[in-house]
Amino acid sequence: MLKREFTEEQTLFRGAYRKFLQQEIVPYMEHWREQGIVGREAFLKAGKLGFLMTWPDEQYGGMGDNDFRFEQIIIEENQYALTGDWGATTHSRLVGPYLSRFGNEEQKQRFLPKCVAGESILAIAMTEPDAGSDLAGMRATAIDQGDHYLLNGNKIYISNGINADVIIVAAKTDPSNNPRNIGLFIVERNFEGFTHGPMLKKMGQKGQDTAELFFQDVIVPKSNVLGDDAKGLSYLMEGLAEERLISASSSLAAAQKAFDITLNFTRDRKLFKKSLADFQNTQFKLADLRAELDMQQTYLDQCVKALNHNALSAVDAAKVKLLSSELQCRVVDEGVQLHGGAGYMDEYPISRMFTDARVTRIYAGTSEVMKLIVARDMYKDETLPFIDRDLP
C-alpha cells in the first residue's frame, strides 16, 4: 500500500494513544459491553492525557490543532484495539465542533474546558422515530417564550444518551408558519422535564450507550441557544460532511482489522490436511478485498486532506461514507464465512465485528440516501421526480 501521510507529532500521538488504550480501555471493555455503557472514568482518563477534543484552542484546554488526522488516528486505533464502541469520537469530533462553530464566547468558556477534560460528556439529538435521514421531518419544537424557549418532543437512537451531561437538541422553532426553521439548543442533564429511557438493546456496538430522550416542557434559557434559532438545519448540514467522514474512517479501519484477523485465521485453519490459505478460492477472495481496502484508504485519506483545507464536499463525503460502510460489511461477512463455525461464536472477534458493522450502512445517513446525494449531483441540471431536493 502507498505510504500514508502523518506528521512526526501524529506518529508519536498514535503510539501514545495505542498505549493508553491497552492500559486503560481494553482491560475493561468486556465489562462495559456487558453493562451496555462505558464507564465515565474512561472519558476522564482520556481527557487528562489530552486524548479528547484535541482541536479547541489552548485557552479552552485543547491543543489548538484542528487537523482531522489526530481524530483519524484515534478512530483507527480504537478499531484495531476492538474498542470501537466507545463513544469518544462522538463526544470529541462529532458533537464538540458544534460548540466551536456556532457557540458564542460565553458558551465556549462555559462548556469546552469541561468537555476537553472529560468531565462533561456530549451527545447530539437529531433522530426521531419518524425522522431519521430526513431531518426536516422532525416534530420536536422549541417555542420562544420571551426569556426562554419551551422544548417538547422526543429523540431516539442517541449515542452517549445515558452518559451525556450536555446534549445539543435540534427542534423546530416556528412549526406553524415555517416548519424548516430549526434551532439547536443546549440541554443540560439537570434541566427539569428532561429524562431518558432505559438503554436500548442493540444488535451490536454494545459498549456504546444508546437511549431515547424525552423533553416535556423543558425550559431552555436563551443563553443555551447555538447561533440563530432558525438556521439549525443549515448548521446540521454543515457538520454532516465531517460526520460522514468520521463514519467512513471508522468503517474502513474496522474493515482493515477484520481483514487482518481473517488473514491470520486462514493461515492457521486446517482443511483436508492443508491450510485454508493454500486454497485458491481463499487467496482470490482475500486478494479482491485487499485491493479494495487499499484503494478506498487512498480515497479516504484524500477526503481527510480536503476536510483539512475546508474543501470536502457533501457529495464526496457521501461517496466515501457509502463505499466504506458497504466494504466493511462485505469484509466482515467474508471473514465469518472463512472462519466457518468459529465465525459464529462470540469468542472470536470476527463474530462481534459482524454485528457491529451492520449499523454503519444506516447511521450518518443510510446507503440509499448517500446514493441519492450522489445521483442528485450527477443530474443537478435536470428534474428528477424520484429525488427529494430537501434531502441533506
Rank of each mutant, 00 (worst) to 15 (best):
R18P: 01
E24G: 02
M29G: 01
R33E: 15
Q35K: 14
G36I: 10
L44F: 04
M53Y: 02
W55V: 09
D65K: 08
E71C: 06
N78D: 13
T90K: 00
G103Y: 07
I121Q: 01
I124A: 06
A125W: 01
A131S: 13
G132F: 10
A140S: 15
A142C: 12
Y149S: 04
V166M: 00
I167R: 02
I167Q: 03
A170G: 11
P175E: 12
G183Q: 07
F185A: 12
I186S: 05
H196Y: 06
G197T: 05
L200D: 09
K201V: 14
M203T: 15
Q208S: 09
F215I: 08
F215R: 02
Q216M: 05
I219H: 05
I219Y: 03
P221I: 09
K222R: 12
D229Y: 04
S234E: 14
E242D: 08
K257T: 15
S275L: 05
A287D: 15
A291T: 15
Q297F: 08
L312E: 03
A314S: 10
A317I: 08
L323R: 11
L327K: 04
L327C: 07
Q328E: 15
V331G: 02
V336S: 00
A342R: 09
G343Y: 09
E347K: 11
E347T: 14
P349W: 04
F354W: 11
T366W: 00
S367A: 14
V369R: 07
P392G: 06
